[in-house]
Amino acid sequence: MTARPAQPTTAPPPFGAELRDVVVRYRRRDEAPALGGASLTVRPGTITGLLGRNGAGKTTALALLAGFRRASAGQVLVGPAGAMEDPFENPWAVMHTQLVREGGDVWGDDRAKDTLAHYADARPLWDGDLAAGLLDELEVDLRKKPDEMSRGKRSALGAVIGLASRAPLTIFDEVYLGMDAPSRYAFYDALVADYAEHPRTIVLSSHLIDEVERLFEDVVVVDRGRVLLAEPVEDVRARGVSLVGPADVVEQFVDGRRVLSRQRLGGTAQVTLFGAFDAAQRRRATDAGLELGAVAVQDLFVHLTRETGRDREAQR
């Protein structure tokens, strides 16, 4: 395992990823395809968050990027900027793309060290020291079989495989499942630290948006097989604002905007508004004695995905 044939181990530049009008049907005459014309771009070198409700199509989209399956229609591209290619059965693309799925794609019946040795051999940029340090920190016992591990430890094993592979496109699909809070934060810290030193593209799908939104540079929201938005997280945060202050003043600033939430305590009100709030409006609001706050990506996400659900029902 340690002795490896001499080979070029220069890391390629970070990979970007793109879906263009992608359709995936698991059955030929599926009325609700897993992806129904999804288009998105993951910028190379970013940490991109992929958000979506259960069954929205996140996992399918990620499986396409890693070449795990093929799209029924549309184009799938990964690779360095300007040199993107279809990853399906493309050795160059898949050797540099690591998708970690729930359960980790490991040999459940053999000791974890066998799986780790396999990945170490298969991944050209594998960092054994990083893996060893992380396994130690997350308290994963390599002598154990993954099938005998707790869900959290098994997830941690997958997380370590993902980070140590150092793939120019590294994707974590809800890797945190079953991990306790200290383990999750240890993973986030390791992710940020290693990403800072070894720039690459990381896609992270998660339901724990509050925990991870600060890690993102870009955010992609998928809903019912379509992409609702794909943009820098700062733009997402700028899609809304929260205002706190005297209720009557606050209400003046609502001004026909969509209210995501409204709370009142005596004469004080807090509202979360959907819609951009430009510098001049901010100024006026502060001058009027209001306190401005950011809107959590979580709140906007809930709002956006609930919205489309209503639209669909309205159409019926």
Binding site: F68, E89, T97, D105, H118, A122, R123
Partner: peptide, 14 residues
């Protein structure tokens, strides 16, 4: 058991 780990670790079907 092999094909899944093989593809997940960047191997091809080929």
């Amino acid at each position: 058991t092999l094909v899944v780990v093989h593809l997940a670790s960047g191997g091809t079907r080929r």
